[in-house]
Design a protein around this nucleic acid. Structure first.
Lengths: 195, 195
DNA sequence: TTTCCTATTGAACGCCTGTTCAGTTATAGC
DNA sequence: GCTATAACTGAACAGGCGTTCAATAGGAAA
């Protein structure tokens, strides 16, 4: 038996990535076999190699795509806003982006160690870029007197950890609506660094 | 060949746990084989089973020990302090405990998914206890008027993520001394929830 | 010196791994 | 209706996995 019905390239490809993301997030990259991914997609393991050259690329593609999407959302933000507005935009954007992407966040933060050195460097470079944006906002804010003088690097790392942590406990349809969670986190960040 | 020299039970046992912790942190539980652990210890894979019934117990024992140690440090804190002092004690204790334990923290937060349901429940119960201590401090502080009224559950999770994130970037012998890092984090937390 | 026992080896078990590939089928284009 | 080809199967590959266990070496106790 081969294809069962219709042309599947445009359907199976995304399905492979979705299944891999979900399984990597639930059980970890190393614990998931190509046969398990194939079973979820509904094909044999060999068929996966039409869509990825190997398992490693499946992981690194997912992580690079996640980081590129995140960076793209930053580009949409208005560049001429004041430091406080810029910070608010960054925080709200971060929460909004991460909340519905628990799986991708989990994978992106947990599976760095399973990347080859080259792929690790690529993902890490994007992450540094993202962190640098927040650092710059903190520094501009301090110069403008709108934010406290802080160690920009450490504070940026601390705030990003604070915000990203939302995916540790948030569950779809939970006690709090997303907008309220966004308010709580923005409130915490603002107070932590306000002048 | 059997034993090479001396009685090793008291030495090999800890070495096995140390090697496992280090390797699990670096490469992940699923990616590390019993043969790799044995190689670091300097024995054959079969010898590990003198010290652990199986690989799963090796992981769950490490995680349970980590959480029990963490809970033990809380018990040392003075119970009659005011809410602000209690919060400060909690934060400083958390940073001080986590800073030199990057491997154990990594494993404890990353490998929950590789625990059997029973072991997961045990570790999770301890974690909930720990989070509840911070929640209680936040609630007491709000009642006493020393801290802002906040959603205690969400805020506790956010603050713990903020603090634990220190292990993401801290490296022994880095730019900042530990005491200064502790100050920065306490400052961020205090301002975030101060009345 | 002999005996006992703990710590360890090294081989073996059945099973699973990522990946390759010749063969097969269903569809799209002519 | 025919043909070219993209999509997929299913078997095979070599190698690694966690775990078990009879055999054995070496120190401790007598």
């Amino acid at each position: 038996m081969a294809r069962k019905q219709g042309s599947h390239a445009g359907i199976t490809g995304p399905k492979v990535r979705e299944a891999a993301l979900r399984l990597f997030a639930r059980h970890g990259y190393a614990a998931v076999s190509m046969r398990q991914i194939a079973a979820v997609v509904g094909v044999q393991a060999g068929a996966l190699y039409t869509y990825t050259p190997d398992k490693q690329s499946l992981l690194s593609d997912l992580m690079l795509e996640h980081m590129r999407e995140l960076m793209a959302t930053l580009a949409e933000a208005p560049g001429d806003a004041g430091p406080l507005a810029a910070l608010e935009g960054f925080v709200r954007n971060h929460i909004r982006f991460h909340l519905p992407r628990a799986d991708a966040v989990f994978v992106s933060y947990m599976e760095l160690r399973n990347l080859t050195p080259e792929n690790f460097a690529r993902v890490e470079a994007l992450r540094r870029q993202y962190e640098a944006v927040l650092e710059a906002i903190l520094e501009r804010g301090a110069e403008a007197g709108m934010l406290r003088r802080v160690d920009a690097r450490v504070t940026a790392m601390a705030l990003i950890a604070l915000m990203t942590g939302v995916t540790n406990w948030y569950r779809e349809g939970g006690r709090l609506p997303r907008a309220e969670i966004e308010e709580i986190y923005w409130d915490l960040v603002r107070r932590a660094v306000a002048a």
